[in-house]
Each structure stands twice: as C-alpha cells, then as structure tokens.
Design a protein around this nucleic acid. Structure first.
Ligand SMILES: [Zn+2]
Ligand SMILES: [Zn+2]
Ligand SMILES: [Zn+2]
Ligand SMILES: [Zn+2]
Lengths: 137, 137
DNA sequence: ATAATCCCTCCAGTGACTAGAGGTTCAAGA
DNA sequence: TCTTGAACCTCTAGTCACTGGAGGGATTAT
C-alpha cells in the first residue's frame, strides 16, 4: 500500500489533484490507515497513470470518466472509445486551425510596426480596427 | 448616449460582459441615467471595440489593460505595445506546436485501432501506457 | 521522546466570463 | 396619462481543472 505522496511521485499527479479526482468520482475513495490517511493499491496507481496520460493528451475529465467506464467491459465493442478519441482529435485540429489564423494575423501586425510613438503604432491601430485585418478570427 | 444594450449590439460584447469589464477596471464606470442605468459615450464604444478585438486575437485581460494604459500616452515610444504583441505571438506559436504534437500522437492512436473489443482496443492501451507514445507531450 | 515530514479537512482563488433571481426603469402604444 | 413589456439594475453562484493555504493530526526516523 502506498501513501498519497508516494502515489503522487509514481504517477506525476499532484497530491491535491489526487484528492480532487476522488471527489470528482474519477477514482473511488481509497482505503484508509488507522489514522485516517489514504492508502493506495497498485491498481489505483495504474488508474491514476491512465488519467494522467489522458489529461496530458488533452482529454476532458468527463471523457476520461467515460473511457474508464468503457474499460470495465472488456468484451464490449470498442467503437465508443474510438469515437471519443476521434472527436477529441477533431477538436484539436480545429484549435490548431484557429490558432494558425491568429498567428498569421499577429505576425502581420507585429511586423508592420516600424513605429516610433504610440500615436502611429501599427499594433495599437490594428487592435482598434478589425477592418485592417485580413481574416476573421 | 447609448444604453448598455445598444453598446452590446454595436461592439458585439455581451451585456453582462460589459458590466464585468467595468468591475475589472477595463473600462471606467459610465455615467448613469436618472434611474441609475448605464449611459455610454462614443468613446466608450470605441474602447469596447478595441477590447473585443484584442480578446478575439487572444490577448489576456491584463495585457489589454496595459495596452490601454499605453495608448493614453500618444507621444511615448511604442516598443511596450510591440513587445506585448510579440510575446503573445510567441505564446500562440508555442501552443500551436504543442497541439501539433498532440495531433500527431492522437492521429497515430486513432488510426491504429482496427479493434473489435475494448480488451484489445489500441486507444485504451495507448492511454494506459505512455511508453507506446512516440513523443512527449 | 522528539522532531521532521507527511497527511487530514475545509475554504478560497484562478480566468473570463455566463446564468439566474428578484426587483426597477424606460419607451412606446392605446 | 396609463399600461405593458422589454430592457435594465444588483447580487450570487456556477463553469473547468485544478492550486494554495490555514490549522491541526499521523507517521517515521533518530
Ligand atoms: Zn508599435
Ligand atoms: Zn481582426
Ligand atoms: Zn478501439
Ligand atoms: Zn504519451
């Protein structure tokens, strides 16, 4: 059995975050020591590793909850999990596209200012007037 | 003088958001009607347009506050504004890079599952084990 | 036995809003 | 002028996924 601090070191999930995950129902309440401290099993460490990795890959808590629920039915078809991952990939791509539009616009704005005073700073002017932009954001 | 609703329509900033910006000190408290309703000038509309555009371009509230402060000194050199915009551009680029790494990893994971059951679903397995990943995230 | 470290619960704060409750003011039509 | 309905007011709480701190108890090593 591991203390919460040991689990934190092993999984890279911070101590308060582990407690938060418990409260959110992502992990079930662990056993306790005689002095009421949390004691975790190897299985708990695995689950937290899973959660950590899914979070690192950008999955939301609710999606992770669904993935965990699915993983409890090993014989069920896996298209549910695949759909969650595909949907997440689509969202990531959308964000990339939007950020690229921002990047282009910001690059243009920044490079345009050969400015001296605030009065004729292109950054300030561009922010004041979307008409100077080349695309929507 | 415009009511808060009119300003909202003109600037695209929602009514509660305008009040929120006032509370945050992004705009100074407006005049009031006899019945205590907010009344805005053309200058207020311009400032909210500026804020809206800066938000659309991803600038944080604090940075916008700084940009507004700078714009009150038209004769000052504009490198402060330029630096804020450049720093923001750098952050946007960093986010794009990170999301691209996620995209690559997710694409690989999703396309790898020719799966049938949850038991041998590659999505679930990949989430359980970062060792299967090709990069850090 | 004592000291250092860890752990407990509870509460508050982050950013940038958004939504709702319960009440007041305004503008326009009859 | 009166009335109706839309728009407005303040205040509070909720969103997401944590993070930090206060004030106290437990564990572990010496
Ligand atoms: Zn400039
Ligand atoms: Zn623009
Ligand atoms: Zn699968
Ligand atoms: Zn990984």
């Amino acid at each position: 059995m591991f203390s919460i601090g040991e689990v934190s070191k092993r999984t890279g999930v911070k101590v308060p975050t582990i407690r938060y995950y418990e409260e959110m129902g992502l992990i079930s309440p662990s056993e306790r020591s005689d002095g009421n401290q949390r004691r975790y099993s190897r299985g708990d460490v695995e689950r937290l590793t899973f959660i950590r990795h899914a979070r690192d890959l950008g999955f939301e808590i609710d999606r992770i909850r669904e993935l965990i629920a699915l993983s409890h039915h090993p014989q069920a078809p896996c298209d549910g999990a695949d759909r969650i991952a595909s949907a997440h990939l689509a969202e990531v791509r959308q964000k990339i596209d939007q950020l690229k539009r921002l990047e282009a616009e910001l690059e243009r704005i920044v490079s345009h200012c050969g400015g001296h005073t605030v009065e004729d700073c292109y950054v300030i002017r561009a922010l004041s007037d979307h008409g100077l932009c080349e695309h929507e954001h």
